[in-house]
Design a protein around this nucleic acid. Structure first.
Length: 592
RNA sequence: GCGUCUGUAGCUCAGCUGGAUAGAGCAUCUGCCUUCUAAGCAGAGGGUCGCGCGUUCGAAUCGCGCCAGGCGUACCA
């Protein structure tokens, strides 16, 4: 509730906007005041061309007003004391929709009711579009995430990228960008051979043969011993009736690879769909090879003089572009490395006309950034248009203890997790932390439908609002009293609200309305910083403001104008909560 | 060793494009349901912001150096 924010602008670079968010509005007021004060020599040695930064924040102490601008930073330029500066500026503030006071170097603003009324009216008017399309430089963005091997089920780490990636796509789109979501299928490497070999063993076991995965340290690395291939083996036998103990060895490896891969892909894609993750394209690495683009990329790098041969392999001079060491691009055995295809893939993304590439990668791929950027530069692309969001991994917490992933016995798949805690909670938990920190996913906590679980807290707020809106137009429960309000009247509030009524509830609802107003800047900041956890934090804060208001005030009551004002507020809260939850792809239940 | 992320309340984390007494949730304690969903609200206690030096009128925030932990450091994907 006391969250203060700081928003600064370099004042030589302020651009005029038609629709000002409140913070921008006050910054502009101050900036204009400064200019006028300078013009009449009230700001000491300051000149019109001096560059300075203004900071606006929300005071923690409400006595200081609703917004505060600190002008101490001008002291160095003006060579006079901060309070004098503040007073000089204040003289030139029109103070139409607000009042001001000066404390030290701070100019404190207190807003008048009409500003609050405008906020609510704007939300009602725009509805699902409130907060949308704020971006100034719209870009065609290709967002790539998850991009798992089609060799098995997703683990919980994939779940983090899936949830965050899809939420980020929704956010960037909401902000106004053109976003294309893509999943790169690593279906070309040796891991597919391992998959086929493993399927053969599972089929043999299904046929009753005594075969098992190798236990030898080196040999075992050529197999996937997870049990998930058992149903695949059954499916294979069901669709290949002629297969028996005697001819199973003769099945071509390619056929097994193809079968297993197709099934794994289908399962992965079905899960993504259930998890509310939509991809515009699943881009096959195999297709990339077939298209000749990989070879073409190598050719281009060679032509540019960035390839040399050593120890029988071909190396890319990535150090020219800042990488720690050069990278092998064609192994001594003639095959490509993973990087070779990745170079072609990222070049192809630009060739398809995207302005910006954003990839979400696990922190374990950190070393790849420099080499892919290097390759893009070598091929003549602007590597600054390629962003990698590096995500720390996920720890599962069970009974208060971390369960290390990777130990095969403790392997928890995303399917298991979703089944255990549900889609809403899984998505919310995966999105609620900064991508830079390792996520502790506490299954017990995420499962709980209590206030310990933020996702329920937020959803409950939405359900409560909906309940009030329902009650406003339904008859009394016990003795069938008439409804406090007709459906038509409620529609009237939504579509043609008399915003002057807000003054009836302005005092009690001020904090709540201010929080609603914050939504737009939360969207803008979140989109620009590519963070989705900030949406989670905001939605929790908004829910908190609502719950607090709910406990202190009644919406439905005798005073009809007051009721109308508060119902308008309820519709506004519902709208903003829904818009935010939609970005996270977490449901906003009408009832709980 | 090098690169990178992290180190803030008992726990999980915000704040880190420098600014008014360092915040939230959970946990603990105290109150609040004959009134729109108590899955809620109000309040209390709880912190050498890993350590040191520096820049600044001002540092959790910026710089440098340490300490601790995660990840990476392949002709694997």
């Amino acid at each position: 509730m006391l969250m203060s924010f700081v928003y600064s602008i370099i004042c030589l670079n302020v651009k005029k906007r038609t629709r000002l968010m409140l913070k921008d509005f006050f910054l502009n007021e101050v900036q204009n005041g400064i200019k006028e004060a300078i013009a009449v020599n009230k700001l000491g040695s300051m000149g019109l061309n001096d560059e300075y930064t203004l900071v606006i924040e929300k005071p923690k102490n409400p006595d200081f007003g609703d917004f505060a601008v600190n002008v101490s930073s001008l002291a160095r330029l003006a060579k006079i004391a901060p309070p004098m500066i503040a007073n000089a500026i204040v003289e030139f503030l029109p103070q139409t929709t607000y009042t001001v006071s000066v404390v030290g170097g701070f100019i404190n603003f207190k807003i008048k009711d009409e500003i609050l009324a405008d906020i609510v009216a704007e939300i009602l008017e725009k509805g699902v579009n409130y907060g949308k399309n704020q971006v100034k430089n719209k870009e065609k963005i290709l967002l790539e995430y998850v991009s798992a091997n089609p060799t098995g089920p997703f683990h919980i780490g994939h779940g983090r990228w899936a949830a965050m990636g899809s939420a980020l796509a929704n956010l960037l789109r909401f902000y106004g960008h053109d976003v294309f979501e893509e999943f790169y299928i690593n279906d070309a490497g040796s891991q597919i051979q391992k998959l086929g070999n493993s399927l053969r063993i599972r089929i043999q076991q299904e046929l009753g043969l005594k075969v098992d995965f190798p236990t030898d340290e080196i040999e075992r690395k050529n197999y996937y011993p997870g049990e998930y291939l058992i149903p695949t083996a059954k499916n294979y036998l069901a669709s290949h009736q002629g297969v028996n103990k005697d001819n199973v060895e003769g099945i071509p490896l390619d056929e097994l690879c193809e079968f297993a891969k197709a099934e794994m892909e289908a399962k992965q894609q079905a899960l993504l769909k259930d998890f509310r993750v939509h991809f515009d394209k699943f881009y096959s690495e195999l297709d990339l090879h077939k298209s000749g683009k990989v070879e073409n990329g190598v050719k281009k790098l060679t032509e540019q003089g960035y390839i040399y041969e050593q120890d029988g392999a071909m190396w890319f001079k990535s150090t020219v572009f800042g990488d720690d060491q050069d990278r092998v691009i064609k192994k001594a055995d003639g095959s490509n490395t993973y990087l070779t295809a990745d170079i072609a893939y990222h070049a192809d993304k630009f060739d398809r006309g995207f302005d910006r590439l954003i990839d979400i990668w696990g922190a374990d791929h950190h070393g790849y950034i420099a080499r892919v950027k290097a390759s893009l530069e070598a091929l003549g692309y602007d590597s600054d248009k390629f962003e990698v969001l590096l995500g720390q991994l996920v720890n599962l917490v069970v009974d208060g203890n971390e369960v290390r992933m990777g130990k095969r016995k403790n392997m928890v798949t995303l399917d298991d997790l979703i089944e255990e805690v549900g889609i809403d909670a899984t998505r919310y938990w995966m999105c609620m932390r900064n991508i830079d920190v390792t996520l502790d996913f506490d299954i017990e906590l995420a499962k709980r439908s209590t206030d310990e679980n933020p996702v329920f807290y937020v959803q409950y707020a939405h359900a409560r609002v909906c309940s009030i809106l329902r009650n406003a137009v339904s008859n009394g429960k016990l003795n069938n009293e008439p409804a406090p309000m007709t459906e038509t009247e409620l529609k009237e509030i939504e579509n043609n609200f008399d915003k002057s009524l807000i003054s009836k509830t302005a005092d009690s609802a001020k904090a709540l309305i201010m929080k609603l107003e914050e939504f737009k800047s939360v969207i803008a900041l979140s989109a620009e910083n590519r963070t989705v956890y900030t949406i989670c934090r905001y939605v929790q804060e908004l829910a908190q403001e609502f719950h607090s208001f709910y406990n202190a005030n009644r919406v439905i009551g005798e005073d009809k104008d007051l009721m109308k004002a508060r119902l308008a507020l309820m519709i506004a809260i519902k709208t903003v909560l829904k818009n935010a939850l939609d970005i996270l792809a977490v449901s906003a239940p009408e009832k709980m």
